[in-house]
C-alpha cells in the first residue's frame, strides 16, 4: 500500500459516519442503536456520527427483517450512499429473518436484498455488541480476520466498562 492509500484507510477507520434505517424491526433493536449513540457510550470517541442523509453516511445500520413493502426503499437508500459503503445488520431478524423467516410479508434477512458487511446477532443486540460489531467491520478494512478488531485501543476497553456498569 502506498502512503496515500494508507492515509485514506486510516481516515475511513477513524471517521465512520452512520445512518440508521429501520427495515421492519419491532423497535427493540432501534432503541438499542439509539442507546449506543447516547453520551453514556459516547461513540464520538471513535469518530462515529449519526447522519440524517445517506449521501453523508459510510455505514448503513439496518435493523429488522426486510418486509416486502420496505424492500424498494431499502435498495433506494443503499444506492443513494456514495462509495465506499458498508452495511451492518443489527439483530437476529436482520441477520437471518429471525422468527419471521418464511413469513408471507417478509423477504428474509438484509442480505436477501443488499450485500451485508457485518452481522450483529442478538434479540435485541446490546449497545456494547453493536459497537463491537462496528469495530470488527473497521478491522476488516485493515485486512484483519473476521474475529479480530480494529487497532483502536479505546474501542476494546471502553464499551466493556460501560457494559459492566450497566449490568451491575
Amino acid at each position: 500500500m502506498s502512503w496515500l492509500a494508507k492515509l485514506v484507510t486510516w481516515a475511513r477507520i477513524k471517521s465512520p459516519w452512520i445512518i440508521h434505517f429501520n427495515s421492519g424491526a419491532c423497535n427493540a433493536c432501534d432503541i438499542e442503536i439509539v442507546a449506543s449513540l447516547t453520551p453514556r457510550f459516547d461513540i464520538e470517541r471513535f469518530g462515529i456520527l449519526l447522519k440524517g442523509t445517506p449521501r453523508h453516511a459510510d455505514v448503513l445500520v439496518c435493523s429488522g427483517p426486510v418486509t416486502r413493502q420496505i424492500k424498494d426503499r431499502l435498495i433506494r437508500i443503499y444506492e443513494q450512499m456514495p462509495e465506499p459503503k458498508f452495511v451492518v445488520a443489527v439483530g437476529t431478524c436482520s441477520c437471518s429473518g429471525g422468527v419471521f423467516n418464511g413469513c408471507y410479508n417478509v423477504m428474509g434477512g438484509i442480505d436477501t436484498v443488499i450485500p451485508v458487511s457485518a452481522y450483529i446477532p442478538g434479540c435485541p443486540a446490546s449497545p456494547a455488541a453493536i459497537i463491537d460489531g462496528v469495530a470488527k467491520l473497521l478491522g476488516s478494512l485493515q485486512g484483519k480476520k473476521p474475529d479480530e478488531k480494529a487497532e483502536i485501543e479505546a474501542i476494546v476497553k471502553k464499551p466493556l466498562e460501560a457494559e459492566t456498569s450497566t449490568n451491575g
Partner: peptide, 22 residues
C-alpha cells in the same frame, strides 16, 4: 462525554475527500 480525538476533523476531511462524488 470524552469527545473525539485531536485528529478527528482531519480524518473526517480525508475520508470525505476520498469518497465518491454524487
Amino acid at each position: 462525554r470524552i469527545g473525539p480525538p485531536w485528529f478527528q476533523p482531519f480524518a473526517d476531511f480525508v475520508k470525505l475527500v476520498a469518497k465518491e462524488d454524487i
